[in-house]
């Protein structure tokens, strides 16, 4: 099976029902996407598949094969942060930051589909992502900042 991750094609030998998160983290060494719950309930593992946010912990690799997969590691271009990352950095959002990758990927997906979301739209799009440190108001602020840039 071939997985196209961040523009690079990888030949993968694994059962087709193995979770994408597993392969990303343990076979490809892309540990930016995190395990938080294993049931798609916390958003820490969020990656983009053909531009749409998915929970990599419950996505079998067979569902992602042949599609464009983007992880947090794929956001930077030529050592330059993505505008959403820049905004999160500028607001200095996080505490422990374990949720950061999933938050940023969900935010990128939102802004790709709606470049200037209302606060209600932000809350709705982000509600699947948990920040246990409770930095939500700063995340909303960062997304608003990114939407202006």
């Amino acid at each position: 099976m071939v997985l196209d991750v961040n523009g690079v094609k990888h030949q993968i030998t694994a059962d087709p029902d193995v979770a994408l998160l597993n392969v990303l983290r343990n076979q490809l060494g892309l540990t930016g996407s995190k395990y938080g719950c294993g049931e798609g309930a916390c958003g820490a593992c969020t990656v983009l598949v053909n531009g749409k946010p998915v929970h990599a912990c419950i996505t079998p690799i067979s569902n992602a094969a042949g599609k464009e997969i983007t992880t947090i590691e794929g956001l930077e271009g030529n050592g330059k942060l993505h505008a959403v990352q820049e905004a999160f950095l500028a607001v200095d959002v996080f505490q422990c930051s374990y949720c950061a990758s999933g938050m940023i990927m969900s935010a990128v997906a939102l802004l790709n589909s709606n470049s200037s979301p209302s606060e209600a739209a932000i809350l709705k799009a982000m509600n699947g992502n948990i920040c246990r440190c409770g930095t939500y108001p700063f995340i909303v602020k960062a997304i608003k900042l990114a939407s202006k840039s």
Binding site: G32, K34, T71, S97
Partner: peptide, 20 residues
């Protein structure tokens, strides 16, 4: 700002669960 903030927002910080 948070020290090493850039590592955390780019997925590069290695938590124990990420280590190899």
């Amino acid at each position: 700002p948070k020290v090493d903030g850039r590592l955390f927002i780019s997925g590069k910080h290695l938590y124990v669960s990420d280590m190899h």
